[in-house]
Design a protein around this nucleic acid. Sequence first.
DNA 1: GTGAAAGCGCTAACAA
DNA 2: TTGTTAGCGCTTTCAC
Lengths: 340, 340
Amino acid sequence: MSSKQPTIWDIAIKLNVSISTVSRALRNAPDINPDTKKAILDLAHQLDYQPNTIATSLRKNKTNIIGVMVPEFVHAFFPNVILGIQEAANEAGYKVMTMQSGESLDIEKHNLQAMISSRVDGLILAISRETDDYEHIKSAQRKGLPIVFFNRIVDELPGSKVMVDDYQGAYMAVEHLIQTGCRRIAHLAGPQNLTIGRNRLNGYLDALKAHQFPIDESLIMPCNFLEGKARIYTQQLLDRPDRPDALFAVNDPAAIEALICIQEHQLSIPDDISLIGFSNAPHSAFVTPPMTAVAQPIHAMGRLAAELLMRQISEGQRFSPETHVLQTNLIVRQSTRRLS
Amino acid sequence: MSSKQPTIWDIAIKLNVSISTVSRALRNAPDINPDTKKAILDLAHQLDYQPNTIATSLRKNKTNIIGVMVPEFVHAFFPNVILGIQEAANEAGYKVMTMQSGESLDIEKHNLQAMISSRVDGLILAISRETDDYEHIKSAQRKGLPIVFFNRIVDELPGSKVMVDDYQGAYMAVEHLIQTGCRRIAHLAGPQNLTIGRNRLNGYLDALKAHQFPIDESLIMPCNFLEGKARIYTQQLLDRPDRPDALFAVNDPAAIEALICIQEHQLSIPDDISLIGFSNAPHSAFVTPPMTAVAQPIHAMGRLAAELLMRQISEGQRFSPETHVLQTNLIVRQSTRRLS
DNA sequence: GTGAAAGCGCTAACAA
DNA sequence: TTGTTAGCGCTTTCAC
């Protein structure tokens, strides 16, 4: 803002008191004459005084800003998590500064530096798909920046973590496919450098094994959260003579690509092929047919991440990082067959 | 961040130069000995020095932060606009601080104060559904805060505005319905205190008039961006003996509620009822049947809003507000009948 | 109950 | 080319 805003100095001059008195009145400090205080508060109101949090931040070495960095903003998942973060943060008097890495390690590094320069009090982070080197994150942590990780977890990094039980969710999904009569189940898989990708793959594998199904490596497609890959791999799967009768997708965008591809092939869901997603958002209910999916408590993840971070900020060294694993549950809709 | 970060003072001491020299080196100022500069830059790198933008902001009275406040974050429209804003802002060295009013005037006021306290350099704003009193906004503008409005425009407020041609979009939509043989066209309308609601209604009305269709006020349902309303009103419309054969929805969430309701009534889209939405996002393509909709250049809106704001910030008084009206276009999918 | 003064980390005259 | 200094707006000792 270009033009001058009133400061405590302006108020002090007009009322012929010192700036410390003004500061006391504004901060609700004790040891101040009620009359003086009232006069100051009234004048502040009249001048529409808004404290300069920049100055306070500099002085107190605390910004009351929480940084949030996510890979992207376009699909429903991350915005919904951020919604939960903002709610919890605002209730506690924190503001939220949001950035996207665009799934790029370079941008992630750059943004992290910007966050540090902005002196955010803490960071909530879901790393990019590309991130396989954690030096920038470690460096930030060494500087004392509290970080809470969510969704995309790195085991080797310290810090609180908020995740869902990806293994269990994937296991349930694949078991449901088996129980509804599917025999050849393919997996549109996520990046294997991320625990989220590995755990969902492992749930898939273990569910198959538990039911004495053979593992066919050629049915595991490395979509890796890349836009368009799910479509290409689904195409390949459908063109095979031994095409699968079910697809378990690592996330909703992949599932939707698969859905479109299957429909273009004039195949019926679920009669020819069952499809099950790992839900990023409620709107998997709105596609046709409404999609069976593993649901995650998205909003709660955001709130929890924010709460953990704010505790870490206020408790400082006394705080020990916590890992929370939230439960998923299977929402059966119409992209999978009925239980017989 | 709790622990101490290195400052220019630390660098100055170690190199036995003054802090202004360090400052010069770090800021790429001219008039500095290349050797001194190199030594400073090297040490800064070695210490992993990150400038404290809080201090710079206080000193320069400029934060390089753009505030963004939108009604909500859940549906795809606003996140996508913000994506465009962040892109343009980051390219120009600005950070973005995002807040939601939750469609509440009180929260909008509160957030605006927080933005001012944070001394954002400017604000991009889509007002809440409830906002019918603009004193808080005028007050911020009087303080010199540059504001760019988008999507939800208020004519009486000064400032740049970015909108789409809502009237034209609505007109095209309704004309398409008429041309595909619909005869009783209902409108799930938006709030009439917002230009966006009025303009879309007017486009609807004028298209009907232009084709000599009678106006039936009872077919105009005040959904007002309220969740659940579109469903209730669609229900009412379907229960009428003279039920409409087409619905024009003011936005996608309303259209999707209507779609679900129509399907629950076992009616066919588009054979029994045509449905057309005003698109908040690409994913109206993924519902069943894929929805015909008026498309808006969402991403471009964000970029444009950010660019206008940054120009206003840098040009100051010399800048005169601009209003940009972007074009919409009709995407015909399968929720409306074929042109005969 | 109030004021004076130092200082948070940086920039920008001005002086040398 | 470099250093000294004042000051951005606020909080927080320490006196009185």
